[in-house]
Computed example of a mutant assay.
Amino acid sequence: MTKGRSKQSSGSGDDLSLPKDKILRGRKNFKRLFENEAQVIRNQIVDLRFQILDMDSSGCFMGFIVKKSLGKAHKRNHMKRLLKEAYRHHQHILSKPVSGASVTFHGAFMAKVVDATYADVEKNVIALLSKVRDQLSPGHS
């Protein structure tokens, strides 16, 4: 018995999956995001910390951070799921310009609260992704 999602390819344009290999992982990658060269775009509920790197491989890698001081584990995990879901639905806003510029994008959404609704989180994520997209390609609207 196989699950339905495992047969989907992640290369198609209509695919809304977020494979594990597109999630930012590793201590070195996260440490790099908290250095001076990293840029931060702030919003009401979510901040986006990112770096655009010139590496051999191009792609868009995103992490999701919710500080322990924001609440109990189940609330932090819920907020992280909301961030991932909002990014999964709107990753195309950023992935197309990144692949067109042939650079590597490392970013992390950082939650400021844990009691936000999905609609609020989604609105913040879209705004942040659009701001980064506009920085990558200034002529795009």
Rank of each mutant, 00 (worst) to 15 (best):
K72L: 14
Q91G: 01
S12L: 12
A108I: 02
D14Q: 10
L129K: 02
H106C: 10
A101H: 04
H78S: 14
Q39N: 13
A108F: 06
L136G: 00
V113F: 13
H90Q: 08
G11R: 04
S10N: 14
E35N: 08
V98H: 00
H140P: 00
V114R: 00
G100F: 11
S12W: 13
V98C: 01
R76H: 04
R133Q: 14
L48P: 00
E122I: 04
V98P: 00
L33D: 03
L33Q: 00
T2D: 14
M110E: 11
S17E: 11
L129A: 03
V121W: 05
K67T: 07
S6M: 13
D115S: 07
D54S: 14
S99D: 10
K31P: 02
F64I: 01
D54R: 06
P97I: 07
D120T: 01
K123A: 13
M110P: 03
R49M: 05
G139P: 03
L82A: 06
K67G: 06
N29D: 15
L82D: 07
L24N: 03
G71W: 11
T104N: 07
S9N: 12
E37S: 12
L128I: 09
N29W: 09
H78F: 15
D54G: 11
K84N: 04
I126G: 01
F34V: 04
K72N: 15
R42D: 08
V66S: 02
S130C: 13
M62D: 02
I93H: 03
I23H: 05
N36Q: 15
H92M: 10
G100S: 11
T104Y: 09
I41H: 06
V114Y: 03
A101K: 02
F50A: 01
K96V: 15
T2C: 10
N77L: 08
A116P: 00
R88S: 02
K112G: 03
S12A: 13
K22Y: 04
E35M: 12
L18P: 01
Q51N: 09
D15P: 05
L128T: 03
D54K: 10
D120L: 05
Q39L: 15
H92L: 11
E85C: 07
Q39P: 04
L33M: 04
F64E: 01
E122L: 04
K31H: 14
K3F: 14
V66I: 07
G71T: 09
K20R: 06
F61D: 01
M110V: 15
D47P: 00
K131W: 11
S12T: 12
S12D: 13
N36L: 12
Q51E: 13
S12Y: 13
A101M: 09
E35I: 05
Q91N: 05
L82G: 04
G4E: 13
Q44A: 11
Q51L: 15
T117E: 14
K22A: 02
A73C: 08
I41L: 10
L53W: 11
S99P: 00
V121S: 01
H89Q: 15
K68N: 09
E122W: 07
V103R: 04
L70G: 06
Q91M: 06
L94M: 07
G59V: 02
K72G: 07
S95I: 11
G139N: 12
F61R: 00
T104E: 14
S58N: 12
T2L: 14
R133M: 09
V114Q: 03
V121F: 05
G13H: 14
Q39K: 15
D56E: 15
M55Q: 10
S69I: 09
V103W: 10
F50G: 00
N77P: 05
F34Q: 05
Q135V: 01
